[in-house]
Design a protein around this nucleic acid. Structure first.
Lengths: 373, 373
DNA sequence: ATGATGTATGTAAAGGTTTACATAAGCCCC
DNA sequence: GGGGCTTATGTAAACCTTTACATACATCAT
């Protein structure tokens, strides 16, 4: 039904446009021609020069009212839209933003895209996407978009530039990182306050009475993850709990690494009562691993994640995690980039949004049976 | 660690490139200039005309071997890449494909995107994305990409053209639909054989012994859904079961509509033993609705979905559903579009991939307690 | 009346390609 | 040895804009 209405609307719109054209310029043969109208067609009909047409469009205050009117009419008649190719060629800069992620299929990615696209389109920009699949060679390929001015700016979804540091540092296009600081780029970024988010998670676990809280995650390669670890450390410290490296495990943020961490932990002499995971994927892996050993969550162990991926609400039990306000991040990132494109200088180098704790069912007080641990 | 390796690789690559440049052309001042090299720079260094350079690149067989060699060297020295803007302007067609979906955030969408992007890039095309959010006005906005030659072709994710029928039919760019036939466009499409997929699902339910199988779905507006309904009807017919419209409910493919359908069904005098849902969202809704009423799946009711969205495996119990080979669909769709772009005529008007049944845990034999139904 | 100032518009160059057409050279055959 | 053919390359126009500069005209102060 939505679709039918939509069709009808669009139909009305198009016919009304057509009739205007027919009435005002009965014998303009190029009106419905196969080739789109150029600025020259508009100029001819408006009886002005092409320069005036261009000015009427881009610097309206510079042309006389009467002329502007004629030009606007001519534009309506011809259905002219300015050829973005020619414009970009002349201007030496395009109206496209390249968005590069390691993996387009990532659910974190697609949600951000919504915010990015909305903001971009609102300012007359389009977005171009690419994914590197963690292959530097492919990252390099995307550079051609900048050499040829096909893209004016870059949004990066990865914590590291997908091309060689040396090549790019000098001639890096205006860029903004998303989700996490860019390791080797020194470019501004928009994300969530990872430290604060992690702190919220660990504080929840502490409030529930947990004292032995494992941290499963990759704390070295990705800055966002390092910061989450910092939140964990700070929370424990504030609660007067000495760090226990036996229950801090490295992983790479995949489901598999979460499972693996559980196996490792069970081979050691100390078990935690709660697992704080660096992201939701890891948390899901931990839950699977624990489930496979016959434990119940949250009765036997509590688990927290980070990101609030779409799956988090469907897994059983629904995962308590820290939400990334994805659409908002996308919007802000694009806004920052557009500002960069016009001003040249970034207003800020780091925009941190507030992460919200989403409490679901994967956390409870530590079970008394296990309190001897 | 992956990231570190990648950085290293890219770094090596860039330095080696630099040294080549330095050695071969010690005093070409424009080598590392801020402005990228043009075809003219290459021509000057290779001591040929720009026409020859262009030919050496695009019609290598038309230039002498010795000349081609000189040109290639000059290209290596300057790091020249052809300016896509200028090229598109001249050629009157770009190397971008516009991909429009109602919602970029849709998980079905992002996975297809991977196939689309890979195939496009392999042929030198980039992809541009947009989403209409079911708003015809916004669909119309994307037309400007074609008027101005910013995009050469269109991939559509929706079963209906997002702009007025009349306006577009004549000057529709080369287009391919994905997932389902385009209602009002008469354009080729790539998807899964919906009828066969639905048939597989209903056959599974029948094989388990179900006789009263509800169909929850939207059979009017989307052609793909209509076909799934046809598979359901055919399966029942083949099993000699007369259709029972009391257990066929309309929905709009959302989680909410699945829940709603359950409520409706419980107000009627007939209950099914199984729910065949038009897509996974609906199935998830049904499972939630059934769960809220205290029923266990698959003990009390069996449920099937369609699509195999990423959540399907995480919901409890994991959903038995029909998989769309998303990446393959994307690849095929893009291949078809590119073919269309060069040949002008589509090889086929409909490419249907084989849907696979993914058996998980949401289906079992109907419980005996309920057999009196 | 004259010169200065300001406003509105037009002219033409530039941006980087591709390609039709022209040119030049090499070769072959009668 | 000259006409015709093939092959390799060059010249210049065209694609559609934007904008510096030039022009023309009106206004105003002297």
């Amino acid at each position: 039904m939505i679709y039918t209405d939509q069709l009808k609307h669009a139909f009305d719109l198009s016919t009304s446009l057509c009739s205007v054209a027919a009435k005002t310029a009965p014998r303009q043969s190029q009106v419905s021609n196969s080739t789109p109208a150029t600025i020259e067609d508009v100029a001819r009909i408006a009886e002005v020069s092409i320069a005036t047409v261009s000015r009427a469009i881009h610097m309206p205050e510079k042309v006389a009212n009467s002329t502007r009117l004629k030009v606007n009419q001519a534009i309506a008649i011809t259905g002219y839209t300015t050829n973005a190719m020619a414009r970009s060629l002349r201007l030496g800069r395009s109206n496209m933003i390249l968005v590069v992620a390691p993996d387009i299929g990532d659910p974190n990615f697609s949600n951000i895209l919504v915010g990015l696209e909305n903001e971009a389109r609102a300012h007359g920009y389009g977005i171009l996407i690419g994914h590197t699949q963690n292959d530097a060679q492919r990252g390099l390929e995307y550079l051609k978009f900048f050499n040829s001015n096909q893209a004016a700016g870059l949004i990066l979804f990865t914590g590291i530039l997908p091309f060689g540091h040396q090549t790019m540092t000098a001639r890096l296009p205006p860029s903004v990182g998303v989700f996490e600081p860019v390791f080797n780029g020194g470019i501004p970024y928009v994300g969530v306050d990872d430290t604060e988010g992690a702190r919220k998670a660990v504080d929840l676990l502490l409030a529930e009475g947990h004292r032995k809280i494992a941290f499963i995650g990759d704390s070295r390669t990705r800055l966002a993850y390092t910061r989450r670890r910092m939140g964990y450390d700070a929370g424990l410290d504030a609660a007067g709990i000495p760090p226990d490296t036996r229950i801090v495990l490295e992983g790479d943020g995949t489901i598999e690494s979460g499972r693996h961490a559980v196996e490792q932990l069970f081979m050691r002499d100390t078990l935690p009562t709660a697992f704080m995971c660096v992201n939701d994927q890891t948390a899901i892996g931990v839950m699977i691993g624990l489930g496979a050993r016959g434990y119940d969550i949250p009765r036997d162990f509590s688990v927290t994640g980070f990101d609030d991926v779409p799956q988090a609400v469907f897994i059983s039990p629904p995962l308590t995690t820290v939400r990334q306000p994805r659409t908002a991040i996308g919007k802000q990132a694009m806004a920052l980039l557009l500002e960069l494109l016009s001003d040249g200088r970034p207003a800020e180098t780091e925009i941190l949004l507030r992460p919200d704790l989403v409490v679901r069912n994967s956390v409870s007080a530590p079970s008394r049976n296990w309190s001897k641990r």
